[in-house]
């Protein structure tokens, strides 16, 4: 059977009947709560592709704002055949499997240095991945016997991170960025990758991995890092990624010949700016 016979490629939202297209949205308009407000909400809902749109709830929020809840049928379709997803390029391993793989391939512990950089003081993300306690029922990387974790905590300056990574002979550097105001997370990430490139000039730098709720995983190249983890990432995903990437044959060979000043082809040119 072809996939198209088991699953339609064109879908609509599902309310309580196939293809009814029903959605629910809520929003606020900067208008006083009066008869005109409801019409304004109708108009916005129509422009969003909802027809008919039912404004089921309106509420004044102070003298000059109104809040709406709207249910309605949306006219747009989704074409599943054009949806792009980043497939995970590595298999998920258990802690045991990761430990075994490290022992076999490296015959030493894998070293991970983690930090929140810049002014970001939110260690929730990095701690969820690194602390023994972990996240979503999974233990963090500190729990993996074959991984040595150096968690530098919050508000680490980039030069400090680079020198610690060198000193600890880090295989990977994990950086968490929660604060996104004025794109701080992007700025900080670019600054970090540029600093590592400069410091490891010619030799293979550690794997750079960033994570945070507002990152787009597709931005890795542009930011000069090797991988980006988004919201909801669990420690085992990170551990599996590290094992997959760092223990692969070609990676280790490149690292062994790191003295040769071969250009690092994995980097996109725009990632090196700044």
């Amino acid at each position: 059977m072809t996939p198209s016979m088991t699953e339609p490629t064109i879908v609509r939202p599902y309310g309580d009947t196939t293809d009814d297209g029903m959605v629910q949205v809520s929003f606020t308009l900067p208008v006083p709560h009066d008869a005109r407000a409801e019409g304004a909400a109708q108009q916005l809902a129509n422009k969003m592709g909802m027809a008919p749109a039912m404004v089921v709830h309106t509420k004044a929020m102070g003298p000059s704002f109104t809040f709406f809840v709207v249910y309605g049928r949306v006219s747009h379709l989704v074409d599943l055949s054009t949806v792009e997803v980043i497939e995970r390029e590595f298999t998920l391993l258990t802690a045991k499997e990761v430990n075994l793989a490290i022992r076999k391939a490296l015959r030493r512990k894998l070293v991970v240095v983690g930090a929140c950089i810049g002014t970001d003081a939110h260690t929730v993300g990095i701690d969820a991945i690194l602390n023994v306690k972990g996240f979503a029922g999974e233990k963090g990387l500190e729990y993996y016997r074959e991984i040595r974790v150096v968690n530098l905590g919050a508000q680490v300056f980039v030069p400090e991170l680079v020198s610690r990574a060198r000193k600890e002979r880090a295989d990977a550097v994990l950086v968490s960025q929660v604060v996104t105001q004025k794109d701080a997370h992007l700025e900080n990430t670019r600054e970090m990758s540029a600093a590592f490139d400069a410091a490891y000039d010619g030799s293979r730098r550690p794997l750079l991995v960033v994570g945070g709720p507002r990152f787009d995983p597709r931005m890795a190249g542009g930011l000069g890092v090797d991988h980006i983890f988004g919201k909801g990432t669990t420690p085992s995903e990170v551990a599996s990624y590290l094992a997959h990437t760092l223990l692969s044959k070609e990676h280790r060979e490149v690292r062994r010949s790191a003295q040769d000043p071969a250009p690092d082809t994995r980097r996109s040119p725009e990632g090196v700016r700044r």
Binding site: G118, T119, D120, A121, H122, Q155, V179, Q181, K182, A184
Partner: peptide, 21 residues
Amino acid sequence: RSTGQSLLDYVPEGATRQGYA
């Protein structure tokens, strides 16, 4: 407060219009 402030060893001065979070 702006997230960076706790590690500043001085108190900024004046009315401020730019902080992080």
